[in-house]
């Protein structure tokens, strides 16, 4: 797959909850090129997070088609394997495991790979160095600042060399200065690791950092615009 190919292809995707009363996705269409950085914007309840969950195979759609990294997510049964190999998640609330050290948290996704303990450690160290936390590898997350925790979460998301990083409001719990640092870090790593970055946000200045902005409303893509930046 080269950089001109679509890594995400979504057509007519529908997802409803509560016996069809709530339509989270209502015929969503979206294409994302490999290595692209897009932001998904829209008001609360518009379907942003549902779309992210579908791309990350955390949930399955009722109708339509969704191909991610060449895998038909409407058909495959091995969703956990897909997530482990192709997807890295960055959540608003970093969601680190409090009793594990920084380096152990980063290694967690590697349990589902065939990596040896040494390989796991080396890869985690490489990423912790990239996010400038090599001096805090043995600390517990509770001793870190919000920005540092999110940097650990970014390292964790990248540890299995995923094709796509899905970031759900990654700066939502941070102050604007720290948020900017995190966004720049995500942007840098997206470029260095040649990973596609899909970021959900409702803050325009965050969205504008992406190459494209996808506006979502009532479970559909309303328009796609190129970012000013």
């Amino acid at each position: 797959m080269n950089n001109t190919e679509n890594i995400i292809e979504i057509k007519g995707l529908k997802k409803s909850y509560d016996n069809g009363k709530i339509k989270a996705l209502n015929g969503m269409d979206l294409e994302v090129k490999k290595g692209e950085f897009i932001s998904i914007m829209g008001p609360s309840g518009s379907g942003k997070s549902s779309l992210l969950n579908m791309i990350g195979a955390l949930d399955t759609a009722n109708e339509g088609s969704i191909m991610v990294a060449g895998i038909d997510l409407m058909k495959t049964k091995k969703l956990n394997k897909f997530r482990s190999k192709e997807i890295g998640f960055v959540f608003q609330m970093h969601n680190l495991i409090p009793n594990l050290s920084v380096i152990e948290n980063v290694q967690i996704p590697m349990f589902e790979t065939n990596a040896s303990s040494t390989e796991m450690r080396e890869r985690a160290l490489e990423l912790l160095k990239a996010v400038d936390l090599e001096d805090k590898i043995d600390q517990k997350p509770t001793k870190l600042s919000g920005g540092e925790r999110q940097r650990v979460a970014i390292a964790r998301a990248l540890v299995n060399h995923p094709s796509i990083i899905l970031a759900d409001e990654p700066t939502g719990s941070l102050d604007s200065k720290t948020g900017e640092v995190i966004l720049n870090l995500l942007k840098d790593l997206h470029a260095k690791e040649n990973v596609t970055l899909v970021m959900v946000t409702h803050e325009p200045y965050v969205g504008n950092m992406a190459e494209r902005i996808v506006n979502v409303l009532d479970g559909k893509c309303q328009n796609i615009v190129s970012s000013l930046s």
Partner: peptide, 16 residues
């Protein structure tokens, strides 16, 4: 619960 959700998100199998 949330932590288990994260483990699932990073690819852990139900069996693990």
């Amino acid at each position: 619960t949330r932590e288990i959700g994260v483990l699932k998100a990073v690819g852990w199998t139900d069996r693990r």
